[in-house]
């Protein structure tokens, strides 16, 4: 394996391996930016990994009033799951519990997909017979009476089968502070890329996993090869001067969006340099056997 060095940062000649996923998007609006974000934060909470949360979700972009259907501040939220059924279930649960409930909110389709996913057309029953269907052009909306007025919700949103989950960068640094600085810089750059979310807390995950475990009941367990405390006991990937590793995981609406986010993140990490940030950048894969998508770091260099 021949590694490259750019601006003093070692770039492993490896690739991130990612999987095809189902995804949808919605636009949440509210009387203020703050309340649009509150609703979005609530509905994308506990959505870091499909393994334990059922879906991965996050805010794609904030929208100014002139970019939303009703002229109020809003956000676009992306939701990823492994199957259409699970995506539908997560979407309705989360919108029903977190967006419908949020003061002044409204909810619209955020994606024109090949197939529709139910949104207002399922939530309308909350209206107990007082729900009102309105069609404007070729879009249908439901108005549900609630205690602060009406919850307006588009009947359906779109589904894409071209989404990709699991793009990633591994940032290897001398210490925890440097690893965090590099990861923060990477996430910030990736957030500017449309069509992607970084579902972990603040976009960063510290407990990367490998497939399998010594315990039969677990399908995944700690990524021992990248844990500095196990350096002396397992076949470690870490050099003696690496004491902390953080990972950024990226889900995107499309293959291209994931590549663009990884490219932007990689640039930010390289620009930060090895003294203040990561000394080495790698990526997680399964030998290329499991995932349909591969993102080679050398192809994504600035």
């Amino acid at each position: 394996m021949q590694n490259l060095t750019v601006n003093g940062v070692i770039i492993d000649d490896t690739f991130a391996e990612a999987f095809g996923m189902r995804a949808t998007a919605i636009i949440i609006t509210a009387p203020s930016r703050q309340w649009a974000l509150e609703a979005a934060r609530s509905m994308t909470g506990f959505a870091t990994s499909v393994i334990g949360c059922g879906c991965e979700a996050g805010v794609d972009v904030e929208l100014s009033p002139d970019e939303t259907p009703d002229g109020r501040p809003g956000v676009r939220v992306l939701i990823f799951a492994v199957s259409t059924d699970e995506l539908q279930k997560q979407l309705l649960n989360r919108v029903g519990q977190c967006v419908l409930t949020s003061p002044g909110s409204a909810c619209y389709a955020g994606l024109e997909g090949t197939e529709p996913l139910k949104l207002g057309s399922a939530m309308r029953y909350f209206g107990d017979g007082w729900q009102i269907s309105k069609r404007l052009g070729n879009r249908q909306f439901w108005r549900l009476p609630v205690m602060d007025g009406e919850f307006v919700c588009e009947a359906t949103t779109g589904l894409t089968k071209k989404a990709v989950g699991g793009g990633n960068l591994l940032l290897l640094a001398h210490g925890g502070a440097e690893a965090l600085a590099a990861a923060e810089a990477g996430v910030e750059a990736m957030r500017a890329v449309p069509g992607v979310i970084m579902p972990f807390p603040g976009g960063i995950v510290r407990s990367g996993s490998k497939v399998g475990s010594k315990y039969k009941s677990l399908v995944a367990s700690t990524n021992d090869a990248y844990s500095p405390v196990l350096r002396a006991q397992v076949a470690s990937e870490l050099d003696p001067d690496i004491n902390a590793v953080l990972e950024i995981v990226i889900d995107g609406e499309t293959d291209e969006a994931v590549a663009a986010a990884m490219r932007a993140g990689l640039k930010a990490v390289i620009d930060l340099g090895p003294e203040r940030g990561a000394q080495r950048v790698s990526a997680g894969n399964y030998g290329g056997k499991l995932g349909k998508f591969q993102y080679h770091l050398k192809d994504l260099l600035p």
Partner: peptide
């Protein structure tokens, strides 16, 4: 009547 639907409708009418 205070509803997000009012502005949704007005915007649709202006667009049309």
């Amino acid at each position: 009547w205070f509803s997000a639907f009012a502005s949704l409708l007005e915007r649709h009418l202006m667009q049309e």
